[in-house]
Amino acid sequence: MESQAGGASPAPANTGTGHAPGSSGIGSLLKLSGASKQRLAGWLFLTPAIAYLLFAFALPIVYNVLLSFERDSLSTIGSINAPWAGFFNYTAMFNDQIAQSAIVHTLVFTVGSLAGQFIIGLSLALLFSNRFPGRTVARSLVIVPWLVPLIVTGVIFRFMFQQEGGAINQILVGTGLIHNPVDWLGTTSYALLTVTIANIWLGVPFFTLLLYSALQEVPAEVKEAAMIDGANPWQRLRLVTIPIILPVIEITFLLGFVFTVKVFDLVIGMTGGGPANATQLISTWSYTLGFQEFNFGEAAALNNVLLVAALVCAPLYLLLSRDQLRRSSGAGR
């Protein structure tokens, strides 16, 4: 990578005061006050952003955590001081069969989605890195899933996977892969798979775009060097290309994880959580708990499982992106 050539150069000094190093006591005092003035200005610039973050992110999270420790009902939800419930909501949640299966479903759904999205996204990204007629058109078609509202996507997929007259069954029966139409969404053993497939379709553009742009950063000559060194295409992918874009892959997975665990509209549109709660996810079940059964406390407790996952991911994301920064600047030892 060309950009690594300057890796040894230190970060520019950020004094901004123009004082020569090693100046007198008064000089360094002035410099200090200049620096703190600058820091103050920095905070002032940050204030709107911080206020927004507090309002949009911190407040709902704190409220959600509070809710999970309260015994709320429709009559108390509006007021600040609802009766304290301790860990009641949490024990209730962990004794709730459906909540338990929702956690498992969310896990399966997330892992399945990410794996599918990565494999398909990487394949498409590799495909688009080659020159072929119609490449530009194909590349822009990739983002189509983003143009369709999620709830509409859910409905379209429901139609496609219908037992009678659904496109998927017609194709599978037509090509002789199956003999009888499968009830994709009505069978408990297939429904989660079907929902996952739909979600993979939704997430592929994200993976494709990020991985595609990462692939463009892999120098052609490095791949050529590997070719000359005798690496076959698979070895070039596994030993050269993927390791080089690994930082991007890691971050893509992390963001993909965050997007996937909170998928809601799609499932509501396709199955509404059914059949027999077979596609009930944390998001859909806590929604049902809260807004249909008005069990706000347990809904909040269940939601906090996601919160914990997010809390694990956020520092990981920071770590990885800092790591990537360090790696690409070549400063790491």
Binding site: E221, V222, E224, A225, I228, P243, I244
Partner: peptide, 11 residues
Amino acid sequence: MVFQNYALYPH
């Protein structure tokens, strides 16, 4: 082959 701009494996 030794490439003009090295083409080392960065990772």
